[in-house]
Computed example of a mutant assay.
Amino acid sequence: MNALLIDIGNQRIKLAVATSPRRVNPLPPLPSTIAAEELKAKTGRIVRRHKPGACVIASVVPPVTRRILATIRSQFPGKGVFVLNFASFAKLMKTAVKPRPEPGADRLADVLALKALCPLPACVIGAGTAITVNVVDKNGVFRGGAILPNTGLQLAALRQKTARLGVVRNLDARAHAIGTDTRSAVTAGVMRGAECAVEGLVRDMQAELKMPFKTIIVTGGHGERFAARLKARGLKAEYDAAFTLRGLAWFADAQQPR
């Protein structure tokens, strides 16, 4: 397998070339607002250099997906271009999650990677624009999870909905839990609040499963501090920046003829 992986997020498009789920070579990301011609030029250079035989696309932004699909299909004539969605996911993995509204493709890629690569039961925390916490049980079934706003969305809500708290923009990740002024109080509520929420969800999910997770993976651009928090609180969490891409690589491999 030699596949181009494209993970379209709300703010960035992550790219990688992979020969297996464990051999993923991340490439420089692109902004989700990239113009069609610039995108075509950049992906064209990747295709010429790495010569991938297939391409997998996962997206949480439908308008961007349509634009990228048109470009990629023109660069892979006669080759496989595969889109990870709930229908294609459900052919590969059992799930208790309802198909409508459709779960985000990033969540689907994350749990595919859990099932393929990790001891179960397990959970994966995706810390992007939103935070997702997803669970695969001991039988390899995607049970579902939780979604909550990350710190950027929380700050945006304070800016839009309050008269004075919106002046706080830059947060200190090392802040104490007890803030001594408005800025440090907002930091405590937003930064520490998100960390506590994730930890609480992980513990509650273990309680619902009636067994501890054998694997806890944290991924996403804001994930390292969540992994550090979980470790400090006695949970065996690992940070893997490429974990979603590993799930896409496994999905790409599953599309190959056997």
Rank of each mutant, 00 (worst) to 15 (best):
A16M: 00
R22Q: 11
P26M: 10
V97M: 09
Q160T: 09
R183H: 12
E199A: 12
K79E: 08
R258Y: 14
H50Y: 15
H176G: 10
T187P: 03
K236F: 15
L171I: 10
V64A: 15
A157P: 10
Q154M: 13
V24L: 02
T151E: 13
R258F: 13
F142C: 01
L92H: 08
T182M: 06
L165Q: 01
A122W: 09
E224Q: 11
R73Q: 14
E238Q: 11
P62L: 04
R203D: 09
P29H: 00
A157L: 12
V97S: 09
D240I: 04
V136M: 00
I34T: 06
R100M: 13
R233A: 13
K214E: 15
F226Q: 10
G152M: 06
A54R: 08
C118G: 04
Q75H: 02
R174L: 07
G9Q: 01
L112G: 03
R45K: 12
I72S: 08
L171V: 11
L245D: 03
A116T: 15
F82E: 14
T244S: 07
A41L: 10
L117P: 01
S32D: 05
R49S: 09
A242G: 08
R66C: 13
L108W: 01
D110S: 06
A127N: 06
A197P: 01
E102P: 07
L155F: 06
P52C: 02
T187G: 08
A194S: 12
V168I: 11
T33Q: 14
E199W: 08
V17L: 07
P119T: 01
A197S: 10
C123G: 04
L165A: 06
G179E: 03
S184M: 01
V56T: 09
G128A: 05
I57L: 10
K79G: 09
